[in-house]
Amino acid sequence: MTVPRLLALAAIAAVFYLLGTRHDKHRLERMRIRAQQAWHDPKLKKARSKLFKLSKKNAKKIDKAVHH
């Protein structure tokens, strides 16, 4: 099993564990709130914007290299 598959499997197992335990619903809610706060953080918004622009730029370069 490759490392990315193993990590994905571990993440899925963790999510189902959290969803399955009644005691951890509060913890899951706190994690959801933290994730939303992180998503709306100005520094992360700027980083996402830079990555989006970089991916568009590289996609164009790759497309041009493949088709020429």
Rank of each mutant, 00 (worst) to 15 (best):
T2D: 12
V3Y: 07
V3K: 04
P4E: 11
P4M: 07
P4A: 03
R5W: 04
R5V: 08
R5P: 03
L6M: 15
L7D: 04
L7N: 06
A8Q: 14
A8S: 12
A11H: 08
F16R: 05
F16N: 11
L18R: 07
L18T: 01
R22Q: 09
H23Y: 03
H23V: 05
H23E: 08
H26P: 06
R27W: 15
R27T: 13
L28Q: 00
L28Y: 03
L28G: 02
L28T: 06
R30S: 11
R30T: 12
R30N: 08
R30W: 11
R30M: 07
M31G: 07
R32L: 00
I33T: 08
A38L: 09
H40G: 01
D41H: 07
D41I: 00
P42I: 02
P42C: 00
P42A: 02
K43N: 05
K43A: 09
K45D: 03
A47H: 05
R48T: 04
K50W: 11
L51A: 10
L51N: 15
L51C: 08
F52Y: 01
L54Y: 09
S55C: 10
S55L: 10
K56Q: 15
K60Y: 04
K60M: 13
I62V: 13
D63H: 12
D63Y: 14
K64P: 02
A65P: 01
V66K: 12
H67G: 12
H67P: 01
H68L: 13
H68V: 02
H68P: 03
H68G: 05
H68K: 14
